[in-house]
Each structure stands twice: as structure tokens, then as C-alpha cells.
Design a protein around this nucleic acid. Structure first.
Lengths: 334, 334
DNA sequence: GTGAAAGCGCTAACAG
DNA sequence: CTGTTAGCGCTTTCAC
């Protein structure tokens, strides 16, 4: 392994000179910097990260903490961030929490002890106090979900709108008994989406009945059961809005399995625009979310922040709007 | 930051005793280990990775190098590996290559200079010579794709079977003009799949015409164009087999867009079993691949190898079988 | 402008 | 069984 000492010996100068030259220190002559660079390249010198880190410089590692990478939401994010950060010499590490605060804490512990340059996190419903403390010591940005305790640096989508729009669309189509299957209101996003749903109902000209079922997005069974319960009601809903990608998948499965005719018997609006949603039955009406753009914006901001060396970071929030995509699964209520 | 010195001071012993106790050294009394553990927990001691790494111990980082994490193949792998390695205290880092050898090289450079414990890689078609050299110095395992130059540690699926089975299925259904849209034969997997396709044709009782189109899996347009060309032939195929997930998505898109009736006009067999394939039209006949199991096996093996401290690793290959899943998109040729 | 020297926290060789 | 000591490669005073 080539060290600065080797370069120093080769040039008959001291290691510190070489170190400074490499760090582009102002006190070193341009000529010397030039020579050092040449020899470094010639010898194939690569700085020893461990040694550098030990001197307090943080690593080039950026931790991405998400519930589950298999969710296309998060893999899209991982892709965009990876692209963005790679260009600036950062390396992305992946941590999955399964939406479990203990796991989340373990992952954050791991990351901080690895001296990461920063953490980009989709926090769980109620982060552990210790997680909050550890994140406080590390530059971090929240993505999608926002938790007050984790600071004010956040990139997300307008979750209220993301449910207001499809619900409003159904209201405008004349539906007056509308069901909602969404993720738990304990999650900040879940609460916001529920709010969007309710606001749209409240904004209807005439009284509008909302049938709500909330459950953890992790359990694929929940949404299917909820749907079955709803359809078995004495007065079943004429339309359904779903408030999470995973639940949308489950709902679509169940609709096919139980042979409910869409949109004749039930109008359905999904969440997020997966490729497969276009194929499903008559095509699924849904909200498109600029996830990739969001992640890129987040990555750019992160890099910017690191360069400015403003560790704590002033409050900054970015909110991206959803877009309603109307397909065949929703129609006017007779 | 809490160091072993702090613990040592607290217990009135030397730092090395603490270090050894923490490392579970045989020479330290159980009583002492116990006490050290207690104080360590109490003080919230976390080992300094940088310092440890500088002493030659490799990091707990494992590099996962894949073409594109948005491909569900790879996100499934990332998930399984992350789970598997996390339990053993490893941290997964994510690198994307876009199937480009230069990018691949950059990523591998990055990983080796970060002193990763190992690399799990889905190699590109023709890895750079320098990539080969660098991987030679680092414990690594190939996943899915196998490149002779990168050694003999490989976990993959039986790609020949993965195409033999659906093709054979179509042959058995009486089809005698069968099209294949697959990934470039430059990729080891592409070549094996093509082989499987051809073998199935050759094994037909009567002469069987194969119409082949191979293209990079990256370009979503390729498969759609190829399909259009095939359908415009004077004697169009009566059945189609697809040899990559991404191409399958494109083909399904194009079939819907151009209104080809499946399976009446064309029987179609896809690659890999995405959730959405069940929804598509009459349900897509396809091959199921045990990707998650494969990745878990790979992760377990990796951990095992690290523990045994057998850095180079004897040749080891594991090959997983595909399963044909018959749905509505294929039927007997009239 | 450059050099000498002191560590960062940990491990490991060498002493007891 | 435990303590002493010497670094790993780098950054960073403090000297000149």
C-alpha cells in the first residue's frame, strides 16, 4: 500500500508537505503541489480512508434508511440517490427497518458508529428516543415521512393532496358512500392522507359517508380483509380510495379474486403509479407521485449541505405535488 | 466519544485488558469480561471502526453491485442480503452499474478503497481487466451472472432450464413457429437462455422454426420494436417466449398497445414471476425464479466464508431451478 | 514554504 | 491472567 510517506521519500520532502499538497493547502507552492500530484498518480496512491476518518473527517458513506427496499417507492429513491451521490464521491449504504423502531435504532447506531457523512431516512411511526439523539449528532434529512422530533429538514410529497384529489374526483363523479383503506394514522403520512380523504368528503355539496379502515402497510392481509368487510356491509360503498402502494396491490388482488366488477359495482382509485396499474382490469385511476424527482432533489440538497459544511442545517422543507391519473376504474355513480 | 480508555480508567485496568475482554480473548477471566461488558453498556461504548480498520481488520461493509436496483430482481436480492448480513453485523452498501463496465470499475474501485469485507456482484457483460484485478484482491461472489474471469464462487439460476421449460411447453402445445425476445448473448445469462430456447426447439418431434431477437435489457424500446417486426413478418410466429424481466414488461405493454389478442393470435410466455403478471390479460404463463432464496443462500455462504477466514475461497457454485407457471396466455396451437 | 512531532483509538507483540 | 509499548496513516499544531 502506497502512503504519503512513500511519496515524501520519493520527493525528498516531509510527509506533512505531501499531506498538505494533497489537501490543496494554501501554504504549499503550486510547483510542489504539481510534483506531488504527479508522483501520487504515478505510484497509484490511494488515501487510506480509515486513517483519515480517525482524524475526525467523516467518511464518504451516506446511510439510506427505508422500511423495505422491495417497495418500488424506496427502490426508486435508492436509485435516484445513488446516482446523485455517486457523482459527488459518496457511497450509499442501505438499511432496512421493516417499520420497526428497534430495528431502526440498531441501524442508526450502526451508521453513526461507522461515522457516516449523513443519513437520509424514511422514519418509522415513532422513532426511539435514542434514535432521535443519535440523529441529532449526524447530518440527516427526512424523506417522505416527517417527524417533528427529527428536525426540520424534509423532502416529501403533499400527502393531503395525494388523497384529496382522487377522493374529490370520486365525489365529483357523484359518489356519496366512499371507502378508504389506508395506512395507520400513526404514521405522519397516514394521518395526512386520511385528512385529505376527509377534507374531500367534507367539501362535497351534499352529505357524504366515509367508511375508513386503517392498518399497517406491512401486512398484506389487512387490506384484503378490510375490503371484504366493506363489501359485506348492509350498505356497501360505491367507491374506494386506497392510501398506500402496498395496500393498492392487495386491494387489486382481492378485487380480482372475489370477482367484483370494476367500475360497475365499485369505482376504485389507487395510490402511486406502478407500471402494472395500467394493466389491471380497465386500468386503475390513481395518483402519480414524483418520487424519483423528489429523491434527486433530496440528494442534490444533501450534497449542497455537505459542501457548505453547515452541519446542523437550517430548517428546509420541500413538498412535491401529486397528479391525478384517470383511467377506467372510476366512473360516474348512476 | 467513549473509548476503551474510559472503560479502563473506570475499572482501574489497562486499555489492552479492556480491548481483549471486548474481543472475547481466551486469556481474559470470565469475571473481567463480565465487568467490562457491564461498564461498556453503561457508558454506551461503541467501537471506533476507523481505528479498528486501521489496524488491518477489514470493515463490516459488504458491497452489493447490481445493474439497477429498480429492477425487482435486484431489489429482492438487496432485501434478502441485507436481512442476512445485518444479523451478522455486516452493513450493505449499494452500487449500481447500469450494465456499464466503466461505471462498474469505478464502483469496484470505490469499494476496494473503502476496504470492504467483500463484494457480491452481478457482473456486467465484459468486466474491465482492472475490475477483475481488484476483485481478485477482495473476497467476492458472483450472483446470477457468472464470468469465468471473476472466479468460481457463484450463485445463480439454471438459465438454460428457465427458457427450456416455457419453450418446451409451447412446443408441446403444438407450436412450430416460435419467437424469442431475450437479452444479449454477450451476457452469460443471455447466452444460456438462448441455448435453452434452441434446445427445446431442437427437441421437438417435427421441425420447428425459431425467430430470435436479442437486445440489451436496458433499452425498453428494443423489445417493443422487435415484437412489431415479428408480427409484421409474412409468416408471423404463433408463440413468443421472452428471456428477461424488463423485456417481458415491454412486450406486455406493446401487446396491449397494439391490441394483439393473446392467446388467440399469439401464445406468450414471460420471464420471472412479477405480481402484475397475474393480472395481465388472461394471466401470463411464465417461469418462477427463486430469487429471494438464492440471495439468502448467497448471503449465508458469504457469512460462512468470512467466519472461516478462507479469503480466496474454493470454487463453489449453486444453481437454483426455475418453475414453469402456466396461466392463460398460452394455449394449444390449432 | 516546509519540517518535526504529537496524537486519533485500537490491536498485537512482548513482557511479566 | 494482565500491563507496557509500539505503531497503523493521516492531520494538525508548533517550530523554523
Amino acid at each position: 500500500m502506497i502512503t504519503i510517506k512513500d511519496i515524501a521519500a520519493r520527493l525528498q520532502v516531509s510527509p506533512s508537505t505531501v499531506g498538505r499538497a494533497l489537501a490543496d493547502d494554501a501554504r504549499i507552492s503550486a510547483a510542489m503541489k504539481q510534483k506531488v500530484q504527479e508522483v501520487a498518480n504515478e505510484l497509484g496512491y490511494v488515501a487510506n480512508r480509515a486513517a483519515r476518518m480517525m482524524r475526525g473527517v467523516s467518511s464518504n458513506l451516506v446511510g439510506l434508511v427505508v422500511p423495505d427496499i422491495r417497495n418500488s417507492f424506496y427502490s426508486t429513491i435508492a436509485h435516484a440517490l445513488s446516482k446523485c451521490l455517486e457523482q459527488e464521491g459518496y457511497q450509499l449504504t442501505l438499511s432496512e427497518t421493516d417499520d420497526d423502531r428497534q430495528t431502526e435504532l440498531r441501524q442508526i447506531r450502526e451508521l453513526t458508529s461507522a461515522n457516516v457523512a449523513g443519513i437520509i431516512i424514511v422514519p418509522s411511526a415513532k422513532p426511539h428516543a435514542e434514535s432521535v439523539r443519535l440523529l441529532g449528532m449526524t447530518p440527516h434529512i427526512q424523506l417522505l415521512r416527517k417527524h417533528a422530533s427529527l428536525g426540520e429538514q424534509w423532502f416529501g410529497i403533499d400527502d393531503v393532496q395525494a388523497l384529496y384529489q382522487p377522493t374529490r374526483h370520486l365525489v365529483d363523479l357523484g359518489h356519496r358512500r366512499i371507502a378508504y383503506i389506508g395506512s395507520s394514522a400513526e404514521l405522519p403520512t397516514g394521518a395526512a392522507r386520511l385528512k385529505g380523504f376527509r377534507e374531500a368528503l367534507a367539501g362535497a355539496g351534499s352529505p357524504c359517508e366515509g367508511i375508513e379502515e386503517l392498518g399497517a402497510p406491512g401486512s398484506s392481509e389487512f387490506a384484503r380483509d378490510a375490503l371484504r368487510r366493506m363489501l359485506a356491509l348492509p350498505a356497501p360503498p360505491t367507491a374506494l380510495v386506497v392510501g398506500s402502494v402496498l395496500h393498492t396491490f392487495s386491494v387489486l388482488e382481492e378485487l380480482l379474486a372475489s370477482g367484483v366488477s370494476v367500475p360497475e359495482r365499485l369505482s376504485v382509485a389507487g395510490f402511486s403509479d406502478e407500471l402494472a396499474f395500467r394493466w389491471w382490469g380497465p386500468g386503475l385511476t390513481t395518483v402519480g407521485l414524483p418520487v424519483s424527482e423528489l429523491a434527486t432533489a433530496c440528494g442534490l440538497w444533501f450534497v449542497h449541505r455537505m459542501k457548505q459544511k453547515v452541519p446542523s442545517g437550517a430548517p428546509y422543507s420541500s413538498i412535491s405535488p401529486p397528479t391525478l391519473i384517470v383511467r377506467g376504474s372510476t366512473r360516474r355513480h348512476p
